[in-house]
Design a binder for these strands. Sequence first.
DNA 1: GATGAATGAGTATTCATTCAT
DNA 2: AATGAATGAATACTCATTCAT
Lengths: 195, 195, 195, 195
Amino acid sequence: MPRNVLRDTQMREQRRKEILDAAASVFARRGLLTKIDDIASEAGRSHGYVYSYFKSKEELLLAVIKRGQDLYGEQLNKAIELEGKASDKFRYIATKVLSQESNADSYMVLLQAIFTDLLDDEEKKKIRERGKKNRQLLVQLIQEGQADGSVRQGDPIHLATLFATLIQNLMLLKVREYEPANETTIQLLMQMIGP
Amino acid sequence: MPRNVLRDTQMREQRRKEILDAAASVFARRGLLTKIDDIASEAGRSHGYVYSYFKSKEELLLAVIKRGQDLYGEQLNKAIELEGKASDKFRYIATKVLSQESNADSYMVLLQAIFTDLLDDEEKKKIRERGKKNRQLLVQLIQEGQADGSVRQGDPIHLATLFATLIQNLMLLKVREYEPANETTIQLLMQMIGP
Amino acid sequence: MPRNVLRDTQMREQRRKEILDAAASVFARRGLLTKIDDIASEAGRSHGYVYSYFKSKEELLLAVIKRGQDLYGEQLNKAIELEGKASDKFRYIATKVLSQESNADSYMVLLQAIFTDLLDDEEKKKIRERGKKNRQLLVQLIQEGQADGSVRQGDPIHLATLFATLIQNLMLLKVREYEPANETTIQLLMQMIGP
Amino acid sequence: MPRNVLRDTQMREQRRKEILDAAASVFARRGLLTKIDDIASEAGRSHGYVYSYFKSKEELLLAVIKRGQDLYGEQLNKAIELEGKASDKFRYIATKVLSQESNADSYMVLLQAIFTDLLDDEEKKKIRERGKKNRQLLVQLIQEGQADGSVRQGDPIHLATLFATLIQNLMLLKVREYEPANETTIQLLMQMIGP
DNA sequence: GATGAATGAGTATTCATTCAT
DNA sequence: AATGAATGAATACTCATTCAT
């Protein structure tokens, strides 16, 4: 009986995802000091297993970063597609992003990867490209808000950077309980980008 | 015949500082992956030399973090002592801090140290204490600004956190040329905390 | 597919023993200056291999010492269980112990470990406890001999110490060809403890 | 005024001796793991000081061993020159040697040096020669005792070896409080070599 | 496929030794 | 003479990666 090729492929994809989840969590916690064994344990597998899905630790790291950026992009897109004023969408983004711990993890991994010369420039460039693409979504939203009067005037790119910067860093601090980041913070944040 | 003890001590202090400078620079660039050899090379010395001034890589890392926090605190204090409205002091801080690359380096090192479980909780606690002390300076300044009408109303602690978060993350992004951070950004930042 | 767990475990035990053998031999030859690499080479393996069986050089050293003491204890017990007069058992011990080179190796390792402050007091204490347990076996035998008239009178503990001391040191000297230790020596030794 | 060359030489000799004393004590305690710094500290000097008196750690080690052997030889000679029966001289030796802690230290250093391949064969040979010379003194004494009837019959070389072995190992054990070695032990020892 | 035994490149750290002061 | 700054060879230990079972 021939194997079910489709199912095999799906299975494989599923397994790959499990490893990726484990990797994201551990990379966030231990940074670049993460060991393949840590990831394998987190996934409840042996380290050899990990290698049958990813060629190297670097490949795994890059995959984690990419997925984090893609997920963030999706969250932004979902917000953009909402009904209502731009400021409501920003509020949605702030609330949504800050509420998901995995975002903070992803961002921390990204930061470390960018800041270290572990990765070659080629890879760093790809990461930056994705970052710009995501920021462009925010820029759009800023412009939308400036048009509907719900966001203050000013260079949209800088405003988008400030907004992104704020929620990203707040995420970091929140997760580590290093500084507070709650509803009050979000309200302030909204006033700051408000008109 | 013993040498000139006073001069020896001064020399030693000077050398220690040189290593610390080198270490700060390399830690910022390579994060926790930094090798003692990298630091020694950066300082133009052998690795053994480094060990005659610092007992271990961890001690060196902690010293780098502490110095970064202390310098930041000094910059804040200098701003506080200026004449003028609180908002002018904030502008001074933003301009000053963002203009010094070493601040970004220090902050990145701090982030990685906090985010990794390389350090024990004891050490992390010390770092957090210093962080709180520095933020308290900003809180004071926010309150001063709310009194003189140059800063918007709202919980001072959250406002301070937001401000700190903004300049810190902007520092990061600037240094890595990942995102822009310039005079325009600062102006926006000022409007955001303005009344 | 997981492997045969039972066989794996047995294999692992076997490998551990091989390393222990190699370690005993090299420790005896090079003392505490022994390098892990020496041991690995002796076992025909890489140094990493050694570390997957023993956490550290110290753990390996302690295991070597313990095994040496346990083996010596077994040899004593075997002698005790023989038929015949106590003096015959002593002769058996002297002959048996002196004929096995590994005994000398073990003893030398033990001596060095005890005499250096490499090990903490906790570990040294354990070693001494085992030493006392073994000497107690000799004390029993001395008393048996004094009862059956085949061993001279006198404090059994001191006599046991003297006997142990003699065979241990003779072992040392013999192996290193520093001094002779043969049948004649054993005869003399027997006369000395004889009535 | 020309320097007092004689006094300078004596001074130098004196300093050398001080280092040697410190070295003997530390080598005994820490074995071949002894650091030059340990020795320098023990002597209340800097490590550079040590190097102006001894070319290397090995030279220092060899000097310590040689001195220990020479001192032991002197003690034997002194005993031989006493009036009385050979057995009295043996008792004197046992008492004297066991009462001086430095003898145990020296012997331990010697043992370790012999048992390690740190030293080249050339040096080991010299050490063995001195050892034989000292044992020869004991052999003489055994023969003297067999002549005057105060020592049992048997091959003098083996008897000498046994005696030497006994007192050396007892020294070791005594110093480390690993086993008892006192007046009672000496009495037994005397009976053992007695006729 | 899944495991974990085995390897060895890489790294922190120590310490003998040199030498300028 | 005496010190201790500086070096770098040596060594314990880690961990990514490979591969036989």
